[in-house]
Amino acid sequence: MNLEARKYNFIQELTKVDESVLEKLELVLKANRKDWYDELSDVEKDEIQIGITQADNNEFLSHEEVMNVFSKWQ
């Protein structure tokens, strides 16, 4: 049986489960979900936080301003 058929069969079976089984399946799916942020280094996470803080404080350039700065290389 190919992957698509297995997925279809799984979906069919999901329609028959009760809430407690569904909750357990949801936990399994969440546990297997990788978040790209968790795989970043501490330095990368710090840089992202700096950017978020700057954006919150309106310390950024608009897209148009950035394009004007770099237009000399086009």
Rank of each mutant, 00 (worst) to 15 (best):
S71Q: 07
K72T: 13
L3C: 06
I52V: 14
F70N: 14
G51L: 09
M67H: 13
Y8N: 03
T53Q: 11
Q74Y: 11
T53M: 15
Q54P: 03
E19P: 01
E44S: 00
D42C: 00
R6M: 09
Q49E: 09
F60T: 02
W73G: 03
G51H: 14
V69Q: 07
V17P: 02
I52F: 02
E4T: 07
L22S: 07
F10Q: 05
E59W: 03
A31Q: 13
V69M: 13
I52R: 10
N32K: 15
A5L: 13
R33Y: 06
A5V: 11
M1L: 11
S71T: 06
D35Y: 00
E19L: 07
D38A: 02
F70M: 12
Y8A: 04
K30S: 00
N32T: 05
F10K: 05
N2G: 07
L61P: 09
V69G: 06
E44R: 04
L14W: 00
V17C: 04
V43F: 05
K16D: 05
D46R: 05
R33D: 00
G51Q: 10
V21Q: 07
V69A: 13
K45L: 03
D18T: 04
L3K: 14
L3S: 11
H63V: 15
F60V: 07
D42Y: 01
K34M: 00
L25F: 04
E39C: 10
L3V: 10
W73C: 10
Q12H: 13
L14G: 10
V28A: 09
R33A: 08
E65Q: 11
N68P: 14
F70H: 04
Q49R: 12
I48R: 10
N58D: 09
N68I: 14
W36H: 05
E65R: 11
K34S: 05
K34N: 02
A55P: 12
I48Y: 03
W36R: 07
A55K: 14
E64I: 09
D35P: 00
M1G: 09
L14Y: 02
D35K: 01
D35R: 01
F10T: 02
V17H: 00
K24S: 07
M1I: 10
L3A: 04
M1C: 08
T53I: 10
E26W: 08
K34H: 06
E19V: 02
S62K: 12
E59M: 07
D42L: 01
Y37S: 02
E13P: 12
R33C: 03
L14F: 01
E64A: 12
N68E: 14
Q49A: 08
E4K: 15
V28L: 15
L22W: 01
F60N: 05
V66N: 07
T53E: 10
L61I: 07
Q74N: 06
K16S: 05
E65N: 11
K24N: 11
D56K: 06
K34C: 02
A5D: 15
L25K: 02
K45I: 01
R33G: 01
D18E: 07
V21K: 05
A55S: 12
T53D: 13
L40K: 09
L29H: 08
E64M: 08
I50Q: 12
M1T: 09
D35E: 11
A31F: 14
I11Y: 12
S71G: 07
F10P: 02
A5K: 15
E23K: 08
I52E: 05
N9G: 10
N68K: 08
S41R: 00
A55F: 13
S20Q: 13
